[in-house]
């Protein structure tokens, strides 16, 4: 999997891009903290397919930490929502290679996106809302995250094809 001679640099660049996407997206008005496209997650996907699972986990966790520090939500309920979703999604990514068939960025993205939503709603129920009524809305949230997962998967695919095309550059800095 380790095709780049300096994977640490690529991880840092991907994490920086993810933090930037995270903060840009926070500027887009949304009806609630869990109705986001999650554009930052496409960089996690790129890390997963280009460098492997541990790189994806690093990019994802660094994005949540740095993003929340910059937005001032560190250790707030929003942060825990974000963190739970990120951890859940990364764990599911780790299970994907165990599947009996090969799955590309789109499939992984949809799986991770659905997991992200389930984790967030469970944590929101636990920390913030505390009312079972929230689970009534879960299927509709999940339908939304299916589509955002598809979008992020396609974007990650586009980035990955370009990364592969530039492999001759060998990513040396």
């Amino acid at each position: 999997m380790n095709r780049a001679p300096r994977p640490d640099l690529l991880i840092a660049y991907l994490a920086a891009a993810a933090v930037a996407a995270h903060i840009l997206e926070a500027a887009i008005p949304a009806p609630g903290p869990w109705f986001k496209i999650g554009l930052a997650n496409m960089f996690t996907l790129v890390a997963f397919f280009h460098l492997g699972w541990s790189a994806a986990a690093l990019v994802s966790l660094m994005r949540v930490m740095a993003g929340s520090l910059l937005l001032g939500t560190f250790l707030s309920p929003t942060f825990f929502l974000s963190l739970s979703g990120a951890i859940g999604a990364v764990l599911v990514m780790g299970l994907v290679p165990l599947l009996p068939f090969r799955v590309g960025p789109v499939g992984v993205s949809i799986l991770a996106s659905l997991t992200h939503m389930v984790c967030q709603v469970v944590v929101a129920w636990w920390l913030i809302i505390g009312h079972d009524g929230i689970f009534l809305a879960l299927p509709w949230f999940l339908i939304g995250s299916w589509f955002t997962g598809l979008l992020n998967g396609l974007l990650a695919y586009l980035i990955l094809t370009r990364l592969a095309a530039h492999q001759s550059m060998n990513l040396q800095w």
Partner: peptide
């Protein structure tokens, strides 16, 4: 794009 980006496994999952 969708057809190019997905493998059979992706389509089954979707």
């Amino acid at each position: 794009l969708l057809r190019k980006a997905t493998q059979p496994g992706d389509r089954w999952l979707m």
